[in-house]
Amino acid sequence: MEDLTEIRWHGRGGQGAVTAAKLVAEAALKQDKYFQASPEYGPERMGAPIQAFTRICPEPILIHCAVTNPDIVVVLDPTLLSVVNVTDGLVENGALVINTDMSPAEVRQANNIEGYKIVTVDASKIAVESIGRAIPNTPMLGAVLKATGIMDLEKVAEHIRSSFGKKFSQEIIDGNVEALTRAYQEARSE
């Protein structure tokens, strides 16, 4: 359990926070890791701030308590920074991965954030350019991989190709893989 990684996702209903949490879990399966992924338990409302949680571990995960001290916090919507205390419970050397066009230094200054590793990427722009829609979850996943190294980028891309294949067109799949890879490359950290 020492190698347990806990992630908290902040988004707004409809931005794909729950899907992202799921995607990480399913990708973890492909790499023979153990995982848990769960939405914040409550009614889902389009636009309202929501949370989702992912746990990843090389060993079986036995605990079923809430994620209160995440190692990584992912913010899918920068406007949430002024609405939700996103660093709540974040461990001391934890990482904050934010969808924004600002640099980590600018985010730190604008929101008075001290400590933590801050990773930023303009995931909405990447999503629009690669997928054609402003759903930032896949590129944010790329940034998370960059920030944490919890999983191999190419293996996650493979998972997207195989699992999206049932539901989506080739164009959408390619767009998602491109968004993932681009965000991985463009993510800035401090």
Binding site: L29, Q36, S38, H64
Partner: peptide
């Protein structure tokens, strides 16, 4: 099975 904790969480 425990509501949400098990029912709605993705597990391996």
């Amino acid at each position: 099975l425990d509501g949400f904790i098990i029912s709605h969480a993705i597990d391996r």
